[in-house]
Write a protein that binds this DNA or RNA. Structure first.
Lengths: 371, 371
DNA sequence: ACTTGCTTTGGAAACGTATCCATCGAGTCC
DNA sequence: GGACTCGATGGATACGTTTCCAAAGCAAGT
């Protein structure tokens, strides 16, 4: 049993490494198990003394069944504890499984976690289940995950796309295209709605804010997520141009990985320049985290603006100014759009752009050293 | 279209509230759609010139099919882009859907997010899908969510239980009991394995640590999550007893809600006492957050120990000392246990207790004011 | 009273897969 | 060389639901 190995991991800990497995206190009933199998519609029909079709009509609340009959059926349902088998239901052609697939990145990132939370809430409220898949950067894995979901006949997909090509979705889903909503980033050429942030405006706001506080040497840290951070960078350039401040390309750093560690190192390098930046715009929450560490360790005080708010940002030694987004609203909107699409309303392709806003907390209002 | 309302929300924002929906640029193909429907096993069989059963045998890698035949079938599968319909598969008796249900609390809580991440990773690696349901405190809603999952014929459940009663699970799943693993808290009387933390040891370590730094008036903030924080409180009492320090019950505060706000208010009250505590043990991450705010606002410096680590804890003005847990490992272990159970191995009921460890960062090493 | 039309009801087929069982072919033993 | 064995293969059935279609019940109209 593989678990034994697992339980032994981390055995170097100081205390209470008592990963004990004691067994048999409340043993499972054997596979032969207990009496009643899961009741089916046929059981209900039999008990209520009606036909199978009638039970289905009652369950699905299609009309044309006499109130008295319906009541008998409902009684039988309650008595037996019947619950419709969604699997069998989804097998019928033209029926979907009341399930949507949710494909996103690392849940440890609060941004994705919030997306997931909101999507699940909206879907569950509509009695849809959510199949969650997390992918990290590997288009191969992602495509496999999508195929898997399609194989499970989900009714639609909410995807936070990687830079991959999603055109295969069109092939994949055969007769009628699977409803898909892309979140945070539009997909390249694939059919589907999308809900994104106004990234460019965010980048512009952040940069203009720093410029407005007297900074001229404003660095920008860009994560390799192509679309979003690219747009934010575009906003940066636009703000610089609007303020007639030339961009020093040495201050535009595109990171390889986008991890906090990566950003910390990059920030250190920036601060070690002959003419270091007096402000840094971090196009990502993770990047901001790394930059904070580097700046905190440095002697100089550097202005910072992050992207994506996170809890405790206001508790830092220098509270972090951020471009706050509303991932919750984004996911809600996306999921509602998907459900509408599944429902058959929402006929034409839609592309929503949600606003962002600047939250001033201190780190962005630091002025450059005189000179 | 409901979305219009949605897009209009938050319209008080300063800039870029350009929630514009423009349509029709790349319209969906109509419902009649494009050519090929999703290929089925029958299509594969036809193309390969073999019987349906043979295709099934190849797909499921049951032996007893001649290599040449198998190869023909595999070719046809690739050519057609066939993918097994998991829905139909799950309908067969004795087959499960290669899907597990994951039931937990607010994903915004990094603890749950990490659990979800790890569970999904393990499940997906075993080619299981994960249906995610989040519940918040309402046993009614939770039971409904579980029924829903059972109706979808999931192969098993990973549950972070509320205080509710899970015995109904036994009734619910009919003939053979549904494999269930409880995480973080054992369930009351329900059948199933569980994987929990050594909460009592954690509480003991935290308190002993504070006592060891000279504190005598050690307060404890308890969230109303019954099991875990109750155990942590028990550890607190035990450490106090071991050190022969009497417990002042006014310093034992059980919160109504367990939110940061709640904790902040409670901490303020504590600090306003005639004989305020010199140290606070927060039995929860959220509680620690609130306590940090209250302590930061106060003039006095108070020692703090939190429970559950979180990112940036080391970046706070006074880096937070915490009892660190390993939710990732917990979820991995739980999911592996569930898969083993589904697989039919792991016969007897199991209960695992995972160790915790103290991470000293500064806030717990503050000494009490002399006197 | 018999037809007409409508509502309510039940039977049966179909969805795509896994598996039982029968069949078929080839190799083996006597 | 023929019966027998064993592996490979195909046909048929069942899983639980929805839905098409037909039948039956019933009221109203002629």
């Amino acid at each position: 049993m593989r678990l034994h190995v697992e339980a032994g991991r981390g055995a170097t800990r100081k205390e209470a490494d008592v990963a004990e497995a004691f067994a048999g206190d409340d043993a499972y009933p054997g596979p032969e198990g207990r009496a009643g199998a899961v009741p089916t519609m046929r059981d209900v029909a039999e008990r209520a003394g009606v036909g199978l079709a009638t039970v289905s009509r009652v369950v699905n609340e299609l009309g044309s069944v006499r109130p008295a009959t319906a009541e008998r059926v409902r009684t039988a349902i309650v008595e037996l504890g019947f619950q419709r088998n969604e699997v069998a239901r989804a097998l019928r052609p033209g029926q979907h499984s009341r399930t949507i697939g949710l494909l996103l990145g690392d849940l440890t990132n609060p941004f994705y976690a919030t997306l997931a939370k909101a999507a699940v809430a909206v879907a569950n409220a509509a009695r849809f289940a959510v199949v969650l898949s997390t992918v990290d950067e590997d288009p191969e894995v992602e495509q496999q995950a999508i195929r898997e979901l399609v194989g499970r006949r989900v009714a639609g997909l909410v995807i936070v796309p990687d830079q991959g090509d999603y055109r295969f979705l069109l092939e994949e889903t055969g007769r009628r295209p699977l409803p898909v909503v892309f979140v945070d980033r539009p997909s390249a050429g694939a059919p589907g709605d999308s809900v994104v942030l106004d990234n460019e405006a965010g980048g512009r706001m952040a940069t203009a804010h720093l410029l407005g506080h007297g900074h001229r040497r404003v660095a920008v840290l860009v994560a390799p997520s192509y679309y979003t951070t690219g747009r934010r960078l575009r906003g940066y350039r636009r703000a610089m141009r609007d303020a007639d401040v030339p961009v020093d390309e040495r201050l535009v750093v595109t990171l390889r990985q986008g991890t906090p560690e990566d950003a910390e190192a990059a920030t250190r390098s920036l601060l070690a320049l002959a003419e270091p930046p007096t402000a840094v715009f971090c196009t990502t929450g993770f990047l901001a985290e790394g930059a904070i560490r580097a700046v905190g360790a440095a002697s100089r005080s550097v202005a910072l603006v992050g992207f994506d708010d996170f809890p405790l940002a206001d508790l830092l030694p220098v509270p972090l100014t951020v471009v706050a987004t509303d991932p919750e609203r984004m996911a809600e909107t996306a999921t509602e759009l998907l459900l509408a699409r599944i429902d058959g309303s929402a006929a034409t392709s839609t592309r929503l752009v949600l606003p962002v806003r600047l939250v001033e907390r201190g780190s962005g209002e630091i002025r450059p050293p005189a000179g």
